[in-house]
Design a protein around this nucleic acid. Sequence first.
RNA 1: GGCGACGUACCCAAGUGGUUAAGGGGGAGGUCUGCAAAACCUCUAUUCAGCGGUUCGAUCCCGCUCGUCGCCUCCA
Length: 465
Amino acid sequence: MTIQLHDTMAGAARELMPLEPGNVRIYSCGPTVYGPAHVGNFRSFLFADLLVRYLRYRGLRVTWVMNITDVDDKIIKGARAEGVTIGEISERYREGFLADIKTLGMTVPDVMPRATEHIPQMVELIGKLLERGNAYRTDDGSIFFRIASWPAYGRLARIDPEGMRVGERVEADEYGKDDVRDFAVWKGPKPDEPSWETAIGPGRPGWHIECSAMSMAYLGPSFDIHTGGIDLVFPHHQDEIAQSEAATGKTFVAYWLHCAHLQMGGQKMAKSTGNIARVGEVLGRGISPRALRLALISAHYRMALSFGDDSLQAASSAIDRLDALLAALAAYVSDGPDDATLSTLLDGTRRAFETALDDDLNISPALAAVFELVRELNRRIDARALSTSDARHAIGFVRDLDRVLGIAPVVVESLAPDLQKLVDERAAARTARDFAASDRLRTVLAERGILVEDTRDGQRWRRAE
RNA sequence: GGCGACGUACCCAAGUGGUUAAGGGGGAGGUCUGCAAAACCUCUAUUCAGCGGUUCGAUCCCGCUCGUCGCCUCCA
């Protein structure tokens, strides 16, 4: 079975064939750290995470790079407003981003390069573009990419450069452009903006150049996969292709993957629209990180996804269901023989799971396979059809699939001694049929985040999240 | 205006030219149970925006209409 991925450039799914067999090199457009990222941003980051996790699950080696954009107009504006350096602003939100990554169980990219630490690489790239005549200087020291010098311009987004609607607003520093559609690779110095002294003159990088320079610095002039939100197709990724390929003469990226927008209130979640939710806020409403993660990855990445109280509640309930199963399997004890049908069930589940994800990361049928397994295992638990080792084996199986999903609870070996004492006391109270005491202890434990449930196997507990 | 995507039950969301249209959530009833919770069982779309066409047969293919959303400007 092969892995199919929908390539924006081809406009169709293509079989993944790594340029270097067995090693997939991926670059994902990361955050611009001018403020806290919202969950819409995280949809695209978690989509890349899912891709990386699945490829690794399938045995491929993956090198994953995600940039941190730490110099741009918004950061400069924010720094000016607070009277601090752009470094203070960007570092503050970079740290917040790293914290959110951890909260959401996102794989940490292998490299997270910062734009300000790669000015030399950008300068070198721009130098090549100047040499080759693909870029030109203007009076204010800015350097622009000449779209007319790159015939393939517009292909990624299927946009005809001739038909491009030209915005009404043309920034003051862009009046010198030969063509209004040309884009800045380098912005000339301004008195109140950060500036670098370089071989191509003083100034700061344009928006797109950092991604070209940093991706090629870590992954080479040609690499496998580039991901981002669909809103980056044009102009950002189109411009990356133009400037990268013009400079190297090589194909920049083999597969372009773009995820659709997260929607809230029927519209794209965007700071400018105001319909945003942030990780911290959602968690503050009592939603668990895993439920938030599930809500953000639960639909195919190329489909618009609705986000809101309903989707979060549904995800929370689904997470509870998974947690309850794992707790039940962990508590399960039976002297009976192994279940002869178990391996067939698990094999079928794995097959369905992989078939779905092989098909352009089609997560819905993959999740369906997991939850059908949940029901089947619960059935067997109820029927006491499993052996004790079956139950442990099933836990291992679910956790193996969860390497891709990242929604299972972290393994908890033991409770804090005081909590364990309460759990033991309650078990004793139940044995003594002192229901008043056991009910009281159940309430106490619930207040401390431990849910106890009584079953034929006795009392079992799990964490409420 | 140009380009593109989508419209499946109460909500979210898969799917296939023809057997029972996944899964999650919610709702109703039942079983189990000291209670609670969890779990299991049954039910909850004769129907896939509307209208035409192709076909023996279409939700799935084609066309049109309506609706929603996105990109063309910063944007995940």
